[in-house]
Design a binder for these strands. Structure first.
Length: 229
DNA sequence: GCGACAG
DNA sequence: ATCTTGTCGC
């Protein structure tokens, strides 16, 4: 599986190859898909929420059996197929896919966002609440809202040491006493690290996670309740 | 052997 | 991710 990830990484494009801009996302000229999952025993509940100009345009989901356990570094093999099942029920093509998982911030530069984005050859971004690997260029605690810190490749990764593979982004910061952790943003496919971050910022949101991801998160919970849990 | 690890 | 009540703060 590691070998396959290296192939996927080789096919992935970590440069801008998109036909929209972050501003287009703000202006409602781009369709963004937020993707997340919840679990029901040995079944995955995959949720997709399509957002345009901050408004929900459509939702799609799929409940499928899981074939693999969770293994750090191999998340795409567990969640990839279930997510594809949900994406296939869409009747429109999103301009951008935003995943709840890493993109290039991955040992072999092949996180969930890279894996699925590359398969669909669609622009993709990975957003996580915890850092899988890589090293922040500067301390990430105590950042102010809007701050960003580059994440560089470390020796646990195949990318050349020091390569900027993503960013820690302080999307929210309420008070200074009880601090919130930043989110980690990385390109999955057809985006540079910097543009991926700009796209996430353009997605907006009132919470820590970008709006599309947050909405998919809640939709997944809603589905989970409906189907027992 | 020790450390470290998305969801 | 998931199991889970109350609770502190804006």
């Amino acid at each position: 599986m590691e070998a396959l990830q290296r192939e996927i990484a080789a096919a992935a494009v970590f440069e801008d190859a998109i036909d929209f801009t972050p501003d287009a996302i703000r202006d409602g000229e781009a369709l963004v898909a937020g993707i997340d999952q919840a679990f029901l025993g040995e079944r995955a509940v995959s949720a997709v929420v399509l957002v345009r100009g901050g408004e929900v345009v459509a939702r799609a989901h799929a409940i499928t059996p899981l074939s693999m356990p969770y293994v750090p570094g191999l998340l795409a093999f567990r969640e990839g197929e279930p997510i594809v099942a949900a994406l296939e029920t869409l009747d429109v093509e999103p301009d951008l896919l935003v995943f709840d998982g890493s993109g290039r911030i991955h040992y072999r530069e092949a996180g969930l966002a890279t894996h699925v984005g590359s398969c669909f050859d669609a622009p993709a971004i990975g957003v996580t609440k915890n850092l899988l690997c890589g090293r922040p260029r500067d301390p990430t605690d105590g950042l102010a809202e809007g701050d960003r810190v580059a994440i560089e490749a470390d020796d646990s990764m195949t990318a050349p040491d020091g390569t900027v593979v993503g960013y820690a982004y302080q999307s929210r910061q309420y008070s200074e006493s009880k601090r919130i952790n930043p989110v980690y943003v990385s390109s999955g496919h057809r985006l540079s690290a910097a543009t991926a971050l700009e796209c996430v910022i353009a997605c907006g949101g009132e919470y820590k996670l970008p709006r599309p991801t947050r909405l998919a998160d809640r939709y997944a919970d809603e589905l989970k309740r409906e189907h027992g849990g």
